[in-house]
Design a protein around this nucleic acid. Sequence first.
DNA 1: TATTGTTATACTCTATAACTATA
DNA 2: TATAGTTATAGAGTATAACAATA
Lengths: 168, 168
Amino acid sequence: MAITICAVYLWGVRPHQTTDQYACGGQGLAALPELMAFAIVLTGNIARVAEEHDLTPMQGRLLCGLAEQPRRMMDLAQLLGIEKAALTGLVHRAERRGLVERAAVPGDRRVVHVTLTDDGVRAMAAFEAGVAGALDELLEPLPSVDRAELRRMAAVVVGTAQEATPAA
Amino acid sequence: MAITICAVYLWGVRPHQTTDQYACGGQGLAALPELMAFAIVLTGNIARVAEEHDLTPMQGRLLCGLAEQPRRMMDLAQLLGIEKAALTGLVHRAERRGLVERAAVPGDRRVVHVTLTDDGVRAMAAFEAGVAGALDELLEPLPSVDRAELRRMAAVVVGTAQEATPAA
DNA sequence: TATTGTTATACTCTATAACTATA
DNA sequence: TATAGTTATAGAGTATAACAATA
């Protein structure tokens, strides 16, 4: 059983290794293969779409974080879950590529606002549409009733995780 | 709508931004927030567990890849989805930490077998148990009927993805 | 003093290309 | 020639610690 979990985490549920073969005791052990594979498929799709748009996944996240409005470095770092020093480099590379810009803020001269350039807006929109499209394809084989159920359950799990991590 | 998706990709579905607010056209757009957040929660849990055991997520994957048996570098690279040159460094760092060992193979002197050390076996088992436990906690609020449904649907989606990527 | 952001440094992970040793 | 693996090099992403500028 132990081995099975690891094997699945490595890539996914292989055709002949379906649920029944994992009939072990704990719920976590039982559910792990499918869910880990699911997570890998989802994040793998994001990475693939990002690459198609000549972005890294983290750059995609950065652009998405600026979609609504310009943000301060501190806020952006918190949003992305990285240290401010790491964000400096991330923004620098994005700036060098012409995707974002730094701007001074009138009230407080310590603060920097990061904003999307026109290119950044286009890249963000294309990335986002690509991810949505990839997800559409992925869920295509599920009947719409199932899709709704999947969304509901995913939301429950996410909600649980967020209660456990209030800082998020 | 676009903005909402991005915001969710950044962290997850916030309490007051539930499904209803995403009532946009495409299915991908509609399902994206919950599923992306779900994937982030799952992979974030793996990363957290790995860190608790003083491993990187990739080191955890490496150990899991060696759980069943020693493997050649080429096979391991394919299993992990990275280039052989990248694997050389990964194995080197794990070796330096005493988690794995290289061993010659009798038949073919070009080949190297990577094996888990005793410490590596312990680390692998602890990591694996930690991930299973974290998943148990995460799914705890779902009734067991839902858990079974979630597994089934996840397997369908994963199966679809694998058909699209036969090399995997 | 506290906050905001940057720089310096070090590490992991990754890819490509060139190389060595073996088959 | 082909295969297995390493080395060299480059770059992204990350953290910690020290620093500068501003509040």
